[in-house]
Design a protein around this nucleic acid. Structure first.
Lengths: 139, 139
DNA sequence: CATATTTTGTTTGTGTACAAATAGACTGTG
DNA sequence: CACAGTCTATTTGTACACAAACAAAATATG
């Protein structure tokens, strides 16, 4: 037998989560074709903070140094954020959303909330809360 | 105000799932450093089936054509699977696990189940079942 | 004060993930 | 049979995601 029955792909959390994430991303890009979930997360967090260093923004959005750099580069290329080295600590690259970045965030924030709603649409209210709560406890 | 309070990053399913997946992948690569979750999923499914076309394997493991191609290429480069065009349908590339592929699958299947256990460790039995069930309903 | 350590950012390399375009092989229908 | 539509696989391009190695700046500690 080649299939040790202790392992069934479809019952592994990793597989199930991967599929759920795939569906979520599909919903996201249908509702917000202008940017990726990752880019929106970074822009949203930066708008919420007003200002942050690249590293700080990465930590708060759960992106490692290489990932946040790429995301920031792309957002900056589209003039949604601006960056400047900090005078008082020359290691740090301070980021600020531009006027257009803030406008785009304001425009899509309701859509982004709607993405969550549509992703969770198969569940009722209690189940939604439960799912989020259980997922949070995994981290 | 720059923060429309209908949108809070930390409460979006996408963000919470992303973090859970990150932790899961970290656990996986600690327990199974020899391959990625994706590669293991493809190998496992192929061992379960005995044989499958690349396309078929992609569908069953939720990978699109480009993704499954890359994964298959890497597994083949490590001699874990072999491939040959099908005589009766020259479009299809039939895949078979090699002896070593099967051996590696058998070796790591218990570890892979353990990855799921460790990922779900913060939850009790009922919560685990519930989480998996809720996630499945999202797809 | 001097240097070991930490922090921040960059670069490189590998591996998913998906869209879109292409090509060849099959199938169905007229 | 012809050929329109479908299926399988490949290729190209963009975007995360992480590890590892590096450099420069700041901090800590002796």
């Amino acid at each position: 037998m080649d299939k040790p029955d202790q392992y069934v792909l479809e019952r592994q959390v990793g597989f199930v989560m991967r599929r759920a994430v795939q569906r979520h991303i599909a919903i996201f890009s249908a509702l917000i074709p202008e940017m990726t979930p990752t880019q929106f997360a970074a822009l949203a967090k930066l708008c919420e903070l007003g200002q942050a260093s690249q590293n700080e923004l990465g930590r708060l959005t759960a992106m490692d140094v290489a990932t946040i750099k790429g995301v920031v580069d792309r957002l900056r290329a589209r003039s949604l954020i601006s960056s400047a080295p900090l005078e008082s600590d020359k290691r740090r690259l301070m980021l600020t959303p531009t006027r257009q970045g803030r406008a785009l965030y304001r425009k899509y924030a309701p859509q982004a909330a709607e993405v969550t709603r549509q992703t969770l649409a198969p569940l009722d209210d209690g189940e939604r809360r439960q799912l989020l709560q259980l997922l949070e406890r995994l981290t």
